[in-house]
Every structure is written in C-alpha cells, then in structure tokens.
C-alpha cells in the first residue's frame, strides 16, 4: 500500500507518521504538501497530528480550506481510505468527512499520556486484526479531543457501528475515570458510514517502536493491511 501524509503548515506529527509507516509498517510513504492537488496515486491518505495553522480560530477549521482537501474529500467520496489522527481527526470533522466535533477537554488542559482504548467491534478495516474485549495502550496528546455530536448523530453512529474505539481502563472497562477528555460515550475514534474514513484522537504512530517498549499502535495498521504481524 502507498501512504500519503498531508503536510499542513503547523503539522508536527507528519514526519513521525512517515517514520512509522516506513520503518515499522514497512510500506511506501510520501509527503503531500497542502498546496498540492496531486495525491500521487496513494492508497491511503493520512491527515497527521499537530497544530495546523496554529489551531487559530478553531482546531482544523482553516486547514480544511487547503487546496489539497478538495482532492482528499473527492478521494474519500470514491471510497479511498483516509485516516485523521488527532489534529487530522479535527480537520476531518471540520471538512465534513466525519460527523461530530472535537471540543476542548472538560478539564480545559492539554494532556499527553498513555491511555487504553478498546475496539467496539472488529468488522472495520481499521480494527479487523484487533480483538474485542482487549485493550490497547496508545498515547494521546491534545487539548481539544472531547468528541461531541447531537443525540441523533450519536444514535446513528451506534446503529451503523461507526464508533470504533472507546477509552477504557487497563482491564477494558469503559468508565468515566478512564475518559481523559470528557468525550461522549468515551469515544476515541469513529469512522464514516461507508467505513473508509477513520478519525481517532490517540496517536498509533507513537506506539510502534519496540525500543519505546510499546508497539500496540501497530494493530491499527495491521488491521488496515490485514496482516497478523510486522517483521522487525
């Protein structure tokens, strides 16, 4: 698979994603400048984390107007795989690729730490190699990660199996204490109705390196490639 990482001004997890895809996921990976309209024949487009346009106005609000986004939206509408991580998730909701919004954390602070998430089901291309009931330790780093949507949207997310990841404790219990930002239903990640666009606040690319003693982020990529392991 060929991965394309979109670089907005203020993106700062773009290189981390390139490193992760190249060295650990071991797939071809290119950067796509936000002023470009050429997706370079990529199979997967990733909107990386960071502070696109300084997060001024509102997280992701300006980035969605970048020239590249028109192509990304068209690509997604044709069934292309698009993944938004953290700020990329915020951009994806602003661009209408995903429903809902990411609001300021209830505790009002930026927070960076390991959290546990659990897949709601394993039918998605993003979770198919994961196990229901298992927990995955993946770090978060955001000030605006509180997932919010109105009741109807939430219900349709549930009905369509669009909620992919929920924050949980180490044992897999979905509790208030394990919710790091006040997200509704402990939502950490969702997909669109068609299942080809993923948005998640935790950073799987930060949990790939064996030297960092945590490689549980790889399960997202293993699912995507439908592999059971990566050679290291």
């Amino acid at each position: 698979m060929k991965f394309g990482i979109v670089v907005f001004p203020g993106s700062n997890c773009d290189q981390d994603m390139v490193d992760g895809i190249t060295y650990f996921v071991k797939q071809e990976c290119v950067k796509i400048w936000h002023k470009s309209t050429d997706l370079q024949g990529c199979d997967v487009i990733i909107l990386p984390g960071g502070f696109s346009y300084g997060d001024y106005l509102r997280s992701g609000a300006i980035a969605r107007f970048s020239p590249v986004m028109k192509e990304v939206i068209a690509f997604a509408n044709k069934g292309g795989i698009v993944i938004g991580i953290c700020n990329g998730f915020q951009i994806a909701t602003e661009a209408g690729l995903l429903p809902g919004a990411l609001l300021r954390n209830t505790h009002q602070k930026f927070m960076c730490k390991n959290v546990y998430i659990t897949p709601t089901h394993t039918q998605s291309i993003f979770t198919r190699q994961m196990h229901k009931g298992y927990t995955y330790k993946i770090p978060i780093a955001h000030a605006e990660g509180r997932y919010y949507a109105d009741e109807d949207t939430l219900k349709s997310l549930q009905d369509n199996g669009q909620i992919l990841f929920q924050y949980c404790d180490e044992e897999g219990k979905i509790t208030n204490e394990a919710n790091p930002n006040g997200s509704l239903l402990n939502i950490a990640g969702i997909c669109n109705k068609e299942g080809n666009v993923l948005g998640m606040m935790p950073h799987p690319e930060r949990a790939l390196d064996l030297d960092n003693i945590n490689t549980q982020g790889e399960w997202v990529f293993l699912s995507l490639l439908n592999q059971t392991y990566f050679l290291r």
Partner: peptide, 28 residues
Amino acid sequence: HWIYEQYDSMVGTANMSVNQPSDAAIIK
C-alpha cells in the same frame, strides 16, 4: 505528573523514556 502531562513528551517519536523511564531522558 500534574506538570509534565501538560507537555507533549512524545512528539517526534524519539523519546524512549515514556514507558520505561531512566534517571535521564533517553532520546533516540
């Protein structure tokens, strides 16, 4: 932790001390 959790300590994916700390920070 009430201070450092407000800092992004992991961006760059080179900080190797997140899950196994040492007396100094180990940066790949």
